[in-house]
């Protein structure tokens, strides 16, 4: 078995954003379930939050390759 320690680090680092994205969409889904007419507004907010949370994972993958 061989591999790169960077990738293990990245796998660990991706846990945080993964949980964050899950929380964001969980909140989005329950929000839409409670108030379906607010979907349009919620969707853009959810995608923005998703982008911000995912940014961390993306920074992680960049560093995993660069370091």
């Amino acid at each position: 078995m061989d591999g790169n320690l960077n990738m293990i680090g990245y796998g660990l680092a991706a846990i945080g954003p993964g949980v964050g994205i899950g929380l964001i969409f969980a909140a989005y889904i329950s929000g839409v379930a409670r108030q379906p007419e607010a979907q349009g507004r919620l969707q853009s907010i959810a995608i923005l939050g998703f982008a911000l949370a995912e940014a961390l994972a993306i920074i992680g993958i960049a560093l995993a390759f660069v370091l």
């Binding site: 982008a51 911000l52 940014a55 993306i58 920074i59 993958i61 960049a62």
Partner: peptide, 17 residues
């Protein structure tokens, strides 16, 4: 940092990754 510097990097890297 978040609005000016990170945004283009995440845009590109999200698509790429």
């Amino acid at each position: 940092f978040s609005n000016i510097l990170v945004r283009p990097a995440t845009l590109a890297l999200r698509l790429f990754a």
